[in-house]
């Protein structure tokens, strides 16, 4: 019984971590007032870049770096379009997702079916072998710890540093922030790139450790779920974390139910994460006052200094 519970805990953490990376990155982007709907595309490009590099060089961690950089590079296209050329953020984000899906499928085609040396779970001599505690705390994928570190970093940066305060101010009122001399566009470039890097890292985690493999469209909508998570979290990092593990658990129901021999067609179980996203989004959004209070006021609007 305890064995089973520990296994479930570990699997939930593993499934949720994909979303933690992507959603934390998007949270920072949105806190600066930019809505980037391209998360799905950036994750896929991150995943494919990570996999190709790991496949070619044999160094999985080099792949993780490549995935992060690829996500950031892709997000720069979005940044140039929306920040420098003032394009509609919704349209540009959609374009980024479509482009990323195509680009990753195109570049990854010759690597489908390849096997790489995945990034293995942590194995600390002594600690990881401890009964119960060892498997609860010290035997997860290194990415899980990395994502928790990222969470702490984002929380500290946004709410504990001056730079974070400036970023949030820009998200609330870019005009005021500009008027007192802050570089709105530069900060937004930074926030978008950070979001892209995180999404790329999330994709890399999928391709190098969670799956580990490359198939076309392997993120299966997790980028969009990450976007919903940010709303669900009311733009608060700790709620992103909680929400991500909640969704991680929902994705597991599918496999658990099949293992337990529940007689429901697999397609209906596979619908669960998407249906859950819709329901949760509807329930959270009902409280319009809370959304308005927490959502960055300038979210999705272009900023031009001369306007």
């Amino acid at each position: 019984m305890i064995e089973h519970a520990i296994t479930l805990f570990a699997l939930t953490l593993a499934a949720g971590t994909v979303l933690v990376f992507a959603a934390l990155g998007e949270l920072v982007t949105e806190k600066a007032g930019v809505l980037n709907l391209g998360v799905e595309g950036m994750m896929l490009v991150g995943a494919v870049a990570a996999f190709i590099v790991a496949d070619q060089t044999g160094h999985a961690w080099l792949g993780a770096l490549a995935g992060t950089l690829a996500g950031a590079a892709l997000s720069l296209i979005f940044a140039v379009l929306t920040l420098s050329l003032l394009a509609n953020q919704v349209a540009a984000g959609l374009a980024l997702s479509l482009f990323g899906i195509g680009l990753s499928a195109f570049t990854g085609l010759s690597h489908v079916g390849h096997v790489i040396d995945p990034i293995a779970p942590l194995a600390l001599p002594g600690l990881s072998d401890l009964p119960v505690i060892g498997r609860l705390l010290f035997a997860h994928s290194p990415f899980v710890y990395l994502s928790l570190l990222l969470f702490a970093l984002v929380q500290w940066f946004l709410f504990g540093t001056r730079a974070g305060l400036v970023l949030r101010a820009i998200g609330e009122s870019p005009q005021s922030a500009h008027a007192i001399g802050h570089k709105v566009i530069a900060v937004r470039y930074g926030a978008v790139t950070f979001g892209g890097a995180c999404a790329g890292l999330g994709g890399a985690y999928m391709a190098l450790a969670y799956a580990p493999m490359w198939t076309e469209g392997m993120t299966a909508g997790r980028g969009w779920i990450a976007l919903a998570l940010v709303v669900f979290a009311n733009w608060k990092p700790w709620r992103v974390l909680a929400g991500a593990y909640l969704f991680g658990a929902v994705t597991l129901v599918q496999f658990q139910a099949q293992a337990m021999g529940v007689d429901v067609p697999s397609q209906f179980l596979a619908m669960l994460p998407y249906a859950a996203t819709i329901i949760v989004l509807a329930l959270i959004s009902r409280d319009a006052v809370a959304i308005r209070r927490n959502a960055p006021a300038s979210l999705g609007r272009a900023f031009h200094a001369d306007d």
């Binding site: 595309g41 296209i77 140039v80 379009l81 050329l85 003032l86 394009a87 509609n88 349209a91 540009a92 959609l94 374009a95 980024l96 479509l98 482009f99 990323g100 899906i101 195509g102 680009l103 499928a105 195109f106 085609l109 076309e216």
Partner: peptide
Amino acid sequence: PSAVTRMFQGMLLFFLLAADV
């Protein structure tokens, strides 16, 4: 690969948004 189509679809929209400015 046929995925080249979707890449061009995305690119078309990128260029359009850039030109729209």
